[in-house]
């Protein structure tokens, strides 16, 4: 990693001095232990602060939405993307939230990210793979998964095997802990609408506080549904949740269903595929029926 960090600083320095990019989106030392925080570097001297190690969890692609829009004489912004973040980047490109030619994207090798407690993050246990997508260049090469990979749908299947009452008790237990800090919404690269259904401008400072009881109750279903078919499964929502709510289990349920009902799909992998909910096939299965066409029964 140290080696990768040096290569990153070298590349960033070159790009900044040559004036090809106006800034570099990377990470610097945060306020807490084992905490690297996103930062924009605009001068080669400042690059000594650049940090990259096994605790560098935050994704940078979401910052591109604003950075790539700034005029800056038409200059590009450079960004470092970990393998899973390249899917988010791809997703933002496919929804035209980021203009490709305003960005110089550099993939950086990853070897798994650890929490402050020095354990591998859940999202890394279920790593989607170390390939880079949509990058201009890659530093440090493709990493290797050196740990026992977790089946990413195991958690979903566990819940599916419960009875409806157990499932309800499970989710009520989890979701009732939510304090509506909106961290999950704000960290999500997919959840980047200019105008969000959860905006409540009438309330003054608390523009994302609950407008009513309905929103209070349904926040998680609405959030998960709005990213259904678009979620790249980067796992950031669960990582940032201060109440440790397993939000990835909602997202992965949708991913699992999409794969099963409409065919395998990985959001952000390709720029041309239509997302599952903005397209259809005349042969889609009927909701609630196992396989109606073949005389299947209703699953009730």
């Amino acid at each position: 990693m140290q080696n990768v960090r040096e290569l990153m600083i070298k590349k960033a320095g070159e790009m900044l001095s040559s004036g090809e990019v106006y800034g570099v989106l990377a990470w610097e030392r945060g306020d807490f232990a084992c905490d690297q925080t996103p930062a924009l570097f605009t001068s080669p001297e400042s690059l000594s602060r650049l940090a990259y190690d096994e605790f560098t969890a935050p994704m940078l692609s979401k910052y591109l939405i604003n950075e790539a829009k700034k005029p800056n004489e038409g200059k590009k912004v450079m960004v470092f993307l970990k393998p899973c973040d390249t899917y988010n980047f791809g997703h933002l490109l496919s929804e035209h939230k980021v203009e490709r030619d305003r960005v110089y994207a550099v993939g950086v090798a990853c070897s798994g990210i650890f929490s402050r407690e020095k354990t591998l993050l859940e999202k890394c246990l279920a790593c989607k793979g170390m390939e880079f997508h949509h990058c201009d260049e890659v530093i440090g090469g493709e990493g290797k998964i050196t740990w026992d990979k977790l089946d990413r749908f195991a958690g979903v299947e566990m819940i599916e095997s419960m009875t409806p009452s157990e499932r309800f008790e499970f989710w009520r237990g989890e979701l009732s802990r939510c304090i509506r800090c909106n961290a999950c919404r704000n960290v999500c690269p997919v959840c980047s609408c200019v105008k969000c259904v959860f905006d409540n401008p009438g309330s003054g400072v608390m523009s994302k506080s609950n407008a009513d009881e309905f929103e209070e109750n349904m926040f998680h279903i609405i959030r998960a549904f709005h990213v259904a078919g678009r979620c790249t499964d980067c796992g950031e929502c669960s990582r940032v949740c201060p109440r440790n709510i397993p939000l990835h289990l909602l997202n992965r349920k949708f991913i699992k269903d999409v794969n099963a009902l409409f065919g395998p799909y990985q959001a952000g992998a390709s720029l041309d595929d239509a997302s599952p909910l903005t397209s259809y096939s005349v042969n889609d299965p009927e909701p609630g029926y196992k396989d109606k066409a073949k005389g299947g029964e209703r699953v009730a």
Partner: peptide, 30 residues
């Protein structure tokens, strides 16, 4: 022309999610 095709996909996902959250699948139908 195609409204119900989109509705069908959406409903399939939402109803399955409701079931996942504990609202029995018998309570939703298309």
């Amino acid at each position: 022309t195609s409204g119900n095709y989109f509705a069908r996909r959406r409903a399939a996902l939402l109803f399955s999610m409701l079931d996942y959250l504990g609202v029995e699948s018998g309570r939703t139908r298309v």
